[in-house]
Design a binder for these strands. Structure first.
Length: 209
DNA sequence: ATTCCGATTGCCT
DNA sequence: GGCAATCGGAATG
């Protein structure tokens, strides 16, 4: 359905510079695309979390500007990629304006294109026959922030990527009905734990946990 | 220089 | 459900 479909419109700078929570919810159902030299990856965004350095102790920007969070303090529409737990990467969509320090963590996507490559990246062996994956293995390709970055091969070098460029970008997708968006507390954090800033598509099998 | 610990995952009981 | 893996960023000495 999406494979080979380049007709969908890219999200604009105006979209990304909008209000954090609005952007976070609106990202659900959109298509994350990564075009490598030899491979194309695409997945439908099904789970996100919002982070806001102005009020949110869990945000990397809460402590003020550092070399690490420089991209997150920039203007909306750039990718903030960070390394965590000594072995994983997580990627965020920066939102708002220069200096605000707001971003949306991409927590899970539903694989659409490049599934064979995603499986090879996740299982760390090659070749992999996608048809041989069990339902559980298939779900496990992109059902978490570290998993989706490994599947898409998103790493340190992609920090700061302009989402209006041609390497990594997000396009329009299928509309998600408001009633299908679930709001909850965020996962895996120890500060500002009560902010209801996790959003996901109801009953989607790729949503983490 | 040293210490602490994390926006995670996978394996073990 | 518990916990180890693994390392870089930030704080502290």
């Amino acid at each position: 359905m999406i494979k080979g479909d380049f007709s969908r419109k890219k999200l604009t700078r105006e979209f990304y510079t909008g209000e954090l929570i609005q952007v976070a919810k609106s990202l659900l159902g959109k298509i994350l695309v990564k075009q490598d030299e030899d491979r194309l990856f695409a997945g439908r965004i099904v789970e996100v979390e919002a982070y806001d350095g102005a009020v949110d102790e869990a945000a990397h920007t809460f402590i003020g500007r550092t070399p690490r969070n420089e991209i997150m303090f920039g203007t909306g529409g750039f990718l903030y990629v960070y390394f965590t737990y000594g072995m994983y990467f997580c990627c965020n969509v920066v939102t708002g304006l220069e200096g605000e320090g707001k971003a949306v963590l991409l927590r899970a996507v539903e694989p659409l294109t490049g599934i064979k490559s995603m499986a090879e990246n996740r299982l760390k062996r090659t070749p992999v026959d996608p048809a041989s994956l069990t339902k559980k293995e298939f779900r496990n390709l992109t059902s978490g922030p570290g998993k989706l970055c490994q599947a898409f091969d998103i790493k340190r070098e992609h920090n700061g990527t302009d989402l209006l460029g041609n390497r990594i970008y997000i396009t329009e997708g299928e509309n998600v009905k408001a009633g299908d968006i679930v709001t909850s507390k965020r996962i895996g954090i120890t500060k500002s734990v009560d902010l209801p800033w996790r959003f996901y598509i109801r009953n989607n099998p790729f949503v983490s946990k």
